[in-house]
Design a protein around this nucleic acid. Structure first.
Lengths: 339, 339
DNA sequence: CTGAAAGCGCTAACAA
DNA sequence: TTGTTAGCGCTTTCAG
């Protein structure tokens, strides 16, 4: 016999399926005689009954499923976030459906279509762009969602983001404290909130700390990637070979710097110091270990999931956004400037 | 109006829902007048109709969903495999539901229960142990599944695994070629197929190449983890401080060696060479860059997904298993022995 | 407190 | 080729 159905349980317990349903569902159990309920539950266990969420979903128009929209699972930033998400989704009876967009809006739209087709009850999105018509549309359509890491501008969607400004400030202060005056910034793309927030914070910090404010010290990278970081640093060095420290928009961009150091025989931190952002795994094993701004990955995910579950259960509650505190992890890639 | 249903489409097209269903499903489209079909499809598009897979699943007892059982998404080995899996699942109309077991059999069982509750049509499992009653039971219950990376013993389940023996042989040959005679092996747990296969291959290789076959040169680690690797190397060095090269069971174990090198001031590759296994990301950025046996991660995943889809569509086809070829990536962690 | 009846959206016989 | 009918497994009115 295949997995028993509610009917089987009801028959075996000598009650009507409806009664069995009520007895088995904690939320409606109160409507049924405690004794009967106990009996039904017992029988259900005996038969190894497991409710079929598909059937339940069809009736209740709920799938107990939520969509995770990320650029690329292969980026080490995301797995811990995903873990954090699942850690809160699972006890709540939800499952996460992960899709990768590869940062392609086309693909993103298709993937989200797919998720909606699968009746996800909400979306956790890590691919937000500052100007993101798709997200805006979904939001007006009333799709419950939460942004992680980045957020669109001018749309009132709940989000969990790191405190970019504070993080960059920590980084610049650290470098200034070491004695660096010519600090550069390899910014992330201006299409992302993290890119612009960190850039703005950088400009404020160098100004406040009386460091060199030459605009040539800022290079905006095309992507949040190693290659873009390398290209950015090359451009920077061509303009300002005298730079002694770099605040990278994130860790991958910092890794790109490492490539250029190797390529040009530059010593780090001897000649140039570097600070990353995100503290992705294994950074402590690099040569040199990367100093970086650490964000609480799992916690970001967990918090996002909680916000989303809230949004699902209380659709009318106003969007709540969380700014997560972060800390600077000082490792070997930063040191006082030479001579 | 919420998402239109098949009824809405049928009404708008002036046909019966059953006809609309047939027209919309490519598999049954042949049963319907080409003209009618075209019209229905057109109307469906116009209304933005998207079929509800939940309803479809309820009827067909299929969920178009498969379960991915992995130990921990946070282990960098898995994300690329997952990508590979999704890359073939998605075009086939399937979605993957990922669960993390944290290598806890308890949790594994619970998670698989959950997946089955969600009516997954099959399982891709990366947590196989040599002796794995749960997998054996699922297999006899006829649950379609495929093992990736590791496999249980004595059960006829399709699997995609790296060619462990060949990989270890490459590693040992490389070290022997550099002039190492005292080569050690930090083996993975004996409860996993990869652990024992690599250990066996190591023993064969040192014998065939006339290297030191002292059993003290083999340490079996408790887990496939950095900490276990570190503990293993400490044990090894206490017994055989004269060792000049280590073949680590996998990259994480090799990373553990790096920790011990730092802790004891041992230079690598100056005093001890290390080879890893898996070629997880960013190994080229380590100090020193890790020489390792590379496996085709995405391809493993893709192949696993293909096998599973086959198994689902043809349940009676005999289990097919694939041994994937691998290659040695020589980086900076290996060099001729000192003096 | 429990049973009867209807229906979620779709597909699969069976008829016409 | 199309429509009719029934039902997947469950929840949810509505009566009783």
């Amino acid at each position: 016999m295949q997995t028993p159905t509610l009917r089987d349980v009801a028959d075996a317990a000598g009650v009507h399926p409806a009664t069995a349903s009520r007895a088995l569902n904690p939320a409606t159990r109160g409507l049924v005689n405690a004794e009967t309920a106990r009996r039904v539950i017992k029988v259900a266990e005996g038969l190894g009954y497991r409710p079929n969420p598909i059937a339940r979903g069809l009736k209740t128009a709920k799938s107990s499923t939520i969509g995770l929209v990320i650029p690329d699972l292969t980026n080490p930033l995301f797995p811990p976030i995903v873990r954090g998400i699942e850690d809160v989704l699972e006890p709540a009876g939800y499952s996460g459906l992960i899709v990768n967009t590869d940062n392609d809006p086309q693909r993103e739209q298709a993937q989200i279509e797919l998720l909606r087709g699968r009746q996800v009850e909400g979306l956790i999105v890590a691919t937000a762009l500052i100007d993101h018509p798709l997200m805006a549309r979904l939001h007006t359509e009333g799709v419950p969602m939460v942004m992680v890491n980045r957020r669109p501008d001018g749309v009132d969607i709940p989000s969990i983001t790191p405190d970019d400004a504070a993080g960059i400030e920590l980084a610049v202060q650290h470098l200034a404290g070491l004695g660096h005056a010519k600090v550069a910034h390899l910014a992330g793309p201006g299409t992302t909130s993290t890119g612009v927030a960190r850039l703005r914070a950088f400009r404020n910090a160098v100004r406040d700390l009386d460091l060199d404010t030459d605009p040539e010290l800022v290079v905006i990278c095309d992507h949040w990637s190693e290659d873009s970081g390398a290209a950015g640093l090359r451009r920077l060095l061509d303009r300002r070979p005298d730079v002694t420290a770099v605040v990278a928009g994130n860790d991958l961009i910092a890794l790109g710097c490492y490539d250029v150091f190797a390529e040009r025989g530059i010593s780090c931190p001897g000649e140039i110091s570097v600070v990353g952002f995100n503290d992705m795994p294994f950074l402590d094993k690099l040569a040199p270990p990367l100093t970086t701004v650490a964000i609480p990955h799992q916690q970001i995910g967990a918090e996002a999931a909680r916000l989303l579950l809230d949004a699902i259960s209380e659709p009318d509650r106003p969007a709540r956004s969380v700014l997560l505190p972060l800390s600077l992890v000082v490792r070997g890639s930063t040191a006082p400037p030479a001579g």
